[in-house]
């Protein structure tokens, strides 16, 4: 018998008055998959991720994560997940090691020092462990935020634009770290991104959103073939611009 998806979303909606930020989306994500939520600004990506994290309550619909109903059982789910976003900060005045220690304890990490040493080495952040978080560059902050997201070795990792505002070298290193972690742990990754080459490299599943609805989904190579385009960048532009291409749009 096939294993149940680790993320099951059914007819999820989030309305702000007349604005339909997310409008009846349904999808499943299998254990160990790396899935991208794509769409233009305001398509509903961040809203969807926020609802999966229990940070935002849906207007309607059902979510099951790791076979637990969300947000009802968020207490059981959240210790097994984590999240990183360049739009959410850590306390600026605390040092990197202080920030990570606080979050390690919040997530119930048993051997904090050991875990920090491993993450410091893997993410190459141990050199600035003693520096205040606020004094770091954007790239360093992103690596620290990722270290925070990996503290509890999450079964599900949600990433909102994980390589936004990073230079190509740092972005490439970040993708390498995520790929390594995913391969080693078998974790499920769900990421919102605007970087299509990143999506092609990392993801085996893509969900395209436009005005809060799913307009296409599938593996990147499938979508490229279906839309008759050469890469995901072109597919993204077609969908984001709402280009109707006969029966190709779902």
């Amino acid at each position: 018998m096939a294993e149940a998806p680790v993320i099951q979303v059914e007819n999820l909606r989030k309305y702000y008055g007349p604005v339909r930020a997310v409008d009846g989306i349904s999808f499943d994500i299998a254990r160990g998959a790396t899935c991208a939520l794509l769409g233009g600004n305001g398509a509903g990506k961040t809203t969807t991720i926020a609802m999966l994290l229990g940070l935002l309550l849906p207007t309607d619909g059902r979510m099951h994560i790791l076979s637990e109903e969300m947000p009802r059982h968020r207490d059981r789910v959240l210790p097994r997940m984590n999240f990183s976003s360049p739009y959410v900060d850590l306390p600026q005045r605390l040092t990197v090691v202080e920030n990570l220690t606080v979050y390690a304890r919040l997530y119930g990490v048993s051997q904090v020092r050991q875990r920090l040493a491993i993450l410091g080495r893997d993410l190459d952040i141990d050199a600035f462990f003693q520096r205040p978080y606020g004094s770091l560059s954007a790239g360093q902050k992103t690596r620290v935020a990722l270290a925070k997201a990996l503290l509890n070795e999450p079964e599900i990792l949600l990433l909102d634009e994980p390589t936004a505002s990073l230079d190509p070298d740092t972005a490439d290193r970040m993708r390498g770290i995520l790929t390594d972690y995913q391969r080693r742990s078998g974790a499920t990754l769900l990421l919102a991104s605007h970087n299509m080459s990143e999506v092609e490299r990392l993801c085996d599943q893509v969900i395209m959103l436009r005005t809060g609805q799913i307009v296409a989904s599938g593996a990147p190579h499938e979508l490229i073939r279906r839309y008759g385009r050469k890469d995901m960048e072109e597919v993204f532009l077609d969908i984001a611009r709402g280009i109707q291409n006969g029966e190709l749009l779902e």
Binding site: L55, P79, V88, L90, Y103
Partner: peptide, 12 residues
């Protein structure tokens, strides 16, 4: 510190 979201997605 824009830290509230981090706290509320943690098990806290």
């Amino acid at each position: 510190a824009r830290n509230l979201a981090q706290l509320f997605v943690s098990p806290l």
